[in-house]
Simulated assay, not measured.
Amino acid sequence: MLTRRLLQLFVGLAMYGISLAMFIRAGLGLDPWDVFHQGVAGRTGLSIGVVVIIVSFLVLLLWIPLRQWPGFGTLCNAVLVGVFADVGLALIPTFSHLGGQIGLLAGAVLLNGIASACYIGARFGPGARDGLMTGLARRTGWSVRVSRTLIEVVVLAVGWLLGGSVGVGTVVYALAIGPLVQLLLPWFMVPAAIPPALVPEPGASELPAGPLAAVDPAGAEPLARKA
């Protein structure tokens, strides 16, 4: 089980970084956080992968007042997505004709959805940006939707002002990624381990009620503990 989880985590993060490179090479607009990353990269001269890594660790500092704790997957996410984004940019050419751009954008959205389902389903903890969203929601009492919208509007606006790419790809990503991950996640979700003491006796109808009854899909901790 652990081997599968680790493999799924690393493959998912690698695909996520490659999908980011595909979005950039498509040239039709990025998701809000990557608009910000691209804008910062353009202003600083750093590669976008390096910017992704730096921003990830800066966002993790914001977890401290929210009393969020990173998991193993959180730290891997902070490093590997940026590394593979730069690898992808070195390998994937820029498309100058619209048909190629549309095809690359569609492939990027699909790969990003698979990658998200992979690393979320591995249950090693959320990414830095997702943890910021859920932590803010928990500490303020706002809904996750409100927290996410607020954060992404801010980073999108700042990224656009810095010169990041906003376009049809931004809208496509916003509309497609949620349903796509929801569709794919059951295929990649690793079942939560059940402590031996909670395994039902032969003939028992169900597990005892408790925190394991509801587990966070990101694998950080039981939802009951987050309340």
Rank of each mutant, 00 (worst) to 15 (best):
L2K: 15
T3R: 15
R4E: 09
R4M: 11
R5V: 13
L9D: 03
F10S: 13
A14C: 12
R25P: 02
L28K: 02
D31P: 10
D34N: 14
V35I: 15
G39N: 09
V40T: 04
A41L: 06
G45R: 11
V50Q: 13
V52I: 15
I53M: 15
I53P: 01
L60S: 00
L61M: 12
I64M: 05
P65N: 03
L66R: 09
T74R: 01
A78T: 03
L80I: 13
G82F: 06
F84S: 10
F84I: 11
F84W: 15
L89N: 05
A90E: 09
L91I: 08
T94M: 11
F95N: 06
L104W: 13
L105Y: 02
G107R: 06
L110F: 15
L110A: 08
L111D: 00
N112H: 07
I114H: 00
A117F: 03
G121L: 03
A122M: 11
R123M: 09
G125Y: 00
G127T: 12
D130T: 11
M133T: 08
L136S: 06
R138I: 14
R138P: 07
W142Y: 12
S143I: 04
S143P: 01
R145D: 06
R148H: 06
V153M: 10
V158M: 10
L161C: 08
L162C: 05
L162R: 07
S165E: 14
V172N: 05
A176I: 01
A176S: 12
L180G: 02
L180W: 11
V181C: 04
Q182C: 02
Q182A: 14
L184V: 04
F188I: 06
V190N: 02
P191H: 04
I194D: 00
I194L: 13
P196Q: 10
L198P: 02
P200A: 09
A209K: 09
G210P: 06
G210R: 08
L212Q: 08
D216N: 06
P217H: 02
P217R: 03
P222M: 05
A227H: 07
